[in-house]
């Protein structure tokens, strides 16, 4: 048997890391390997997965988006407000809140992209600032209060189960397929790779790089909105804090999944694996009964380990 090609090895490395983690936690505690527990992982992974998929497109372009906490908060609050205002149940006109939420996400992303591209502010700073704006906007709308969304039909995303997994996991898988479709079959999806692989060259070839960037941020906004919907469905509450912690979790997941921060490679499937790795670690630590206060540190160590094992860093001389 010949040793597998390095390219091939690197492509599958994140998945191998995931499998190794699952095996490890199952050995430590057999309860880990149960449908109930996998469903639990699925539930906790769904909202960050949506956000991470959104930011994947941005990272493929070689940019970064740090606005997701603001975006998720705004989307969640707008959704909940409209939902309650129109009747508070999906069985009424309140279903309009769903598309409205997506539209808000897209607009938010559009604005984010325009600030970045039109004012020529690096995406790190532009999106960081837009994140503050988003958090502020949601605060302004809620006045710091929580909005409860208790509609049974909407919450069935969490409560209804098929094949052991709640509805939201199935919907999320569907969304992943759509994201994969965008990534591999649409012109804009491929253009993200072109921009990430060589922005100047893409521009010289006649590609409207600015337009691609703005569209990328807009698309990311749509996924953040989906993340917001799932987050609200999960806990039944929309508030400013709904967006909390999405930024670091999603970007960590993307990198752990093998998508490089300098752009041009990786993709949706990598992100799925990355999100699962992070959530399996989190869940595994709980199942193992690791004290809460140790979990952040262990997560940190394992994330470093996962990045070391799962990404191709040799080809790059300098890591920033």
């Amino acid at each position: 048997m010949s040793f597998p090609d390095r390219d091939v090895l690197h492509r599958w490395a994140p998945l191998l890391v995931l499998v190794a983690l699952v095996c490890f936690f199952s050995l430590v505690n057999p309860n880990f390997m149960s449908l109930r527990n996998f469903a639990r992982i699925g539930i906790s992974a769904t909202p960050p997965l949506m956000v991470a998929v959104g930011v994947t497109f941005i990272i493929i372009m070689g940019s970064i988006d740090l606005s997701m906490e603001g975006a998720v908060a705004v989307c969640a609050v707008v959704f909940a407000a409209i939902f309650i205002w129109l009747g508070g149940t999906l069985a009424s006109w309140a279903w309009l809140a769903l598309p409205a939420c997506i539209v808000v996400g897209a607009l938010y992303g559009l604005l984010n992209g325009l600030v970045h591209v039109k004012l020529r502010i690096p995406s790190f700073m532009a999106s960081l600032s837009m994140g503050f704006v988003g958090i502020g906007l949601s605060l302004l709308m809620t006045g710091g209060d929580r909005i409860r969304v208790e509609d049974k039909i909407f919450r069935s995303l969490l409560t209804e189960r098929y094949l052991g997994f709640p509805l939201m996991v199935h919907v999320a898988l569907l969304v992943i397929l759509i994201a994969w479709f965008i990534q591999s079959r649409t012109a804009i999806g491929r253009n993200f790779y072109a921009v990430g692989g060589g922005e100047e060259l893409a521009h010289a070839s006649g590609l409207d790089v600015k337009r691609v960037r703005v569209l990328g941020f807009m698309l990311a906004g749509v996924f953040y909105a989906l993340g917001a919907l799932f987050a609200v469905a999960q806990i039944g509450i929309a508030e400013t804090a709904t967006g909390y912690n999405f930024m670091f979790v999603s970007i960590t997941s993307v990198v752990v999944g093998g998508t490089a921060l300098w752009g041009g490679n990786g993709g949706v499937w990598n992100t799925l694996v990355g999100v699962l790795i992070v959530n399996v670690i989190n869940n595994g630590m709980i199942v193992m009964g690791l004290p809460r206060y140790l979990q952040d540190g262990v997560l940190g160590l394992l994330v470093i380990l996962a990045v070391v094992l799962s990404t191709d860093r040799k080809s790059l001389a300098f890591v920033k």
Partner: peptide
């Protein structure tokens, strides 16, 4: 060679 974004985040953890 872990990007500093991730490395410092992890050490922060």
């Amino acid at each position: 060679k872990v990007p500093s974004f991730i490395a410092t985040l992890a050490v922060g953890g």
